[in-house]
Design a protein around this nucleic acid. Structure first.
Length: 613
RNA sequence: GCGCCCGUAGCUCAGUGGACAGAGCAUCGGUCUUCUAAACCGGUGGCCGCAGGUUCGAAUCCUGCCGGGCGCGCCA
């Protein structure tokens, strides 16, 4: 409808003189329903150009638009306020729209604007040095939801996880595991293990084995990995045979285990990657490189050719002062090792070579300073950086009992995503169990049930805020299995519809009891019915706007409006007890509302849409 | 010092340059013998951080200040 009116508006404007070249008319849904279903400010915007009063221009536009629009779609075109032109939908249009929603079913909400385009969404991208934290959770869920949004507007989407297992961090992890392993082995042999004291969680002193590396990873998971390895005869044998005492086998084993754990954590949250990209692939020789990747040598060579690279003090620099920064940037250290920036540049150049039309990076606020360098380099290399979109999300503060929870990975002061999901899920189920009066049920939940319940809430909490907004994750609120928890409001609306339809069929109503032309939607004249249909018809546009902005929280905002409109309908319009034609029409409307809620919750937000609660 | 993000109801946050600024929670009051009360209805509560500017019109755009967060390394 918006597209239709925009087109008519352009037609009308084409007949007017003095309309500026390229003038793009705007249509919006007024906040106040008294101002119609759609509104345009065109007359106000053109007043100075056309040299007339906004009101007069608006009257003229309205007159022409009445002629130009189909009365089966537009019921009225009115001028209001300082010069707005307001449109009201024809009932016929609502009836047709409702029919279209039902026909589209679980495809409703998808649009085709970007069909034929390919998008790469890079997210999570945490090196496997430890379990995913709450912060990674926001990244993962946000990236996943953005990928879903892009798919809904037609993109073919690839989800990629970028990591580097060759750096210092991973070496330190390997050494940390090795130190724990050797200490455990010695203890099992009855030997005393020499220890030293380092700074641990909260600045408290902490005893670690003497061979524990500087800035080693103190988390319990390191010891757990060491224990598991010690209990693995094959691994013990491997260590015994190697005899060089290096950390390499420990690092490798730790990486494998961490990745398995990370994948499991992501899967719990419904996040699945299409590909993992190891930075190591960028070091491969030219002839050896996989597919269309750009190696770091090639990227550096091309930057040098472009004249933006120089050598000084043994290091290789990129002249970022020429791209608006106040410092140049080191690409290769005097040790001969590249900084992380160079592989980043090569990796992104490779994305272009792989033929993506849109490349999205999801980064935490702590990476804010690094991506401009990458974009500058891509620009120098001749790539269209307009196709790269960096989504920066602000940090998550976990609040428990009104107090913020501090987090730091290395010193083992953190809340893992797994813990968060489990804590939330368990508490919610226990509370729910009590609410249902199922005494003793508290202990009876499977890990799977806990995960499902927790994952829905965690996903929803991460998605309900704008990425640019600091996110306060209130554990106490998340754990409330009550009306306080916003995710239930949407799920409950969906459940309620399922319940109504179930009940209606039980007492003999049916979707099939319609005339030859299907249900008679012209019977849906109640204000609550009309408002609900209008809300449902906005869905594709809401999805499009959320996708364009890369902001999944807009979907949440929209779905709340739908749930609210449905609740009004529920309160005022019954099914059981009504004449069959009206009851049947209402069943179809309820079904359409359920479709939108389901598609939004399940397909876009990735949370469950239960039929019973 | 420089860069980016944020500052909207008591709290957590929505708010595509538009027509009287919204939601949830909290608080006060009302609603279950009719399709699920995890719900609904109503009340209280705002110099949209401050000051300028652009505009017919600014919470929204620009500038400056104030306050909070994150960065600013031959760490990632």
């Amino acid at each position: 409808m918006k597209d239709y009116l925009a087109a008519r508006l352009r037609d009308v404007l084409a007949d007017l003189d003095d309309v500026p070249e390229g003038f793009a008319p705007e249509l919006e849904t007024p906040a106040n329903p008294e101002h119609g279903d759609l509104s345009t400010n065109t007359a106000l915007r053109l007043a100075s150009e056309l040299d007339g009063s906004p009101r007069t221009i608006a009257e003229d536009l309205a007159e022409r638009l009445r002629e130009a629009t189909d009365s089966a779609r537009v019921a009225s075109v009115e001028v209001a306020g300082p010069g707005f032109v307001n449109f009201r939908y024809a009932e016929k249009h609502l009836q047709r729209g409702l029919k279209a929603i039902l026909a589209a079913g679980d495809q409703y909400g998808r649009t085709t604007g970007h069909v034929g385009e390919r998008a790469l969404v890079e997210y999570v991208s945490a090196n496997p040095t430890g379990p995913l934290t709450v912060g990674h959770g926001r990244n993962a869920v946000l990236g996943d939801a953005i990928a879903r949004l892009l798919e809904h507007v037609g993109y073919e989407v690839e989800r990629e996880y970028y990591f580097n297992d060759a750096g210092r961090q991973m070496r330190v992890l390997g050494q940390s595991v090795q130190a724990r392993y050797e200490a455990l082995a010695a203890r099992r042999r009855g030997e005393t293990v020499p220890t030293k004291t380092v700074e641990g969680a909260g600045g408290e002193p902490r005893e670690v084995p003497e061979r524990f590396p500087e800035n080693g990873y103190q988390g319990a998971y390191v010891t757990e990995i060491a224990e598991a390895l010690l209990d693995d005869p094959a691994f013990r044998e491997k260590i015994a045979e190697a005899e060089n005492g290096g950390h390499a086998p420990f690092q490798q084993a730790a990486e494998e285990r961490m990745f398995a754990e990370i994948d499991a954590t992501l899967r719990k949250l419904g996040v699945e990657m299409d590909s993992h990209f190891n930075e190591r692939a960028l070091y491969a020789d030219e002839g050896d490189r996989q597919g269309e990747h750009i190696s770091i040598d090639e990227a550096l060579g091309r930057l040098r050719e472009a004249g933006y690279v120089y050598d000084e003090e043994g290091a290789t620099w990129l002249e970022t002062t020429r791209t608006g920064k106040d410092q140049d940037t080191v690409l290769v250290k005097s040790s001969g090792e590249p900084t992380y920036r160079l592989p980043d540049i090569a990796y992104h150049a490779g994305k272009f070579e792989r033929g993506f039309d849109l490349m999205i990076d999801v980064f935490g606020a702590d990476h804010i300073a690094t991506y401009p360098d990458v974009l500058s380099a891509l620009d120098i290399l001749g790539y269209d950086t307009g196709r790269v979109d960096v989504v920066i999300y602000q940090f998550v503060t976990l609040v428990r009992g009104g107090e913020p929870v501090k987090m730091s990975t290395r010193r083992a002061e953190y809340e893992t995503l797994d813990d968060l999901v489990a804590e939330v899920g368990r508490t919610v189920l226990e509370t729910h169990g009590r609410a249902e009066g199922e005494d003793g049920a508290a202990d009876g939940f499977s890990e799977e049930e806990i995960t499902r319940a927790g994952a829905d809430i965690v996903r929803f909490f991460f998605l309900m805020r704008s990425p640019s907004s600091h996110l306060e994750f209130d554990l106490d609120l998340a754990k409330e299995a009550s009306e306080k928890n916003p995710v239930y409001y949407l799920q409950y609306a969906h459940t309620r519809i399922a319940s109504i339809l179930r009940k209606a069929e039980e007492v003999g109503f049916s979707f099939e009891q319609t005339g030859a032309d299907g249900p008679d939607f012209s019977l849906l004249t109640h204000e609550a019915e009309q408002d609900l249909i209008k809300a449902l018809l906005r869905f594709p546009d809401a999805v499009r706007q959320a996708a364009d902005a890369r902001e999944p929280h807009r979907v949440v905002t929209y779905l709340r409006a739908v749930a609210n409109a449905f609740t009004q309908f529920y309160a005022h319009c019954h099914i059981i007890g009504e004449e069959r034609p009206l009851a049947t029409a209402r069943m179809h409307l309820a079904k359409a509302a359920q479709t939108v809620l389901r598609n939004g919750l399940v397909e876009l937000l990735g949370v469950d849409a239960p039929v019973r609660m």
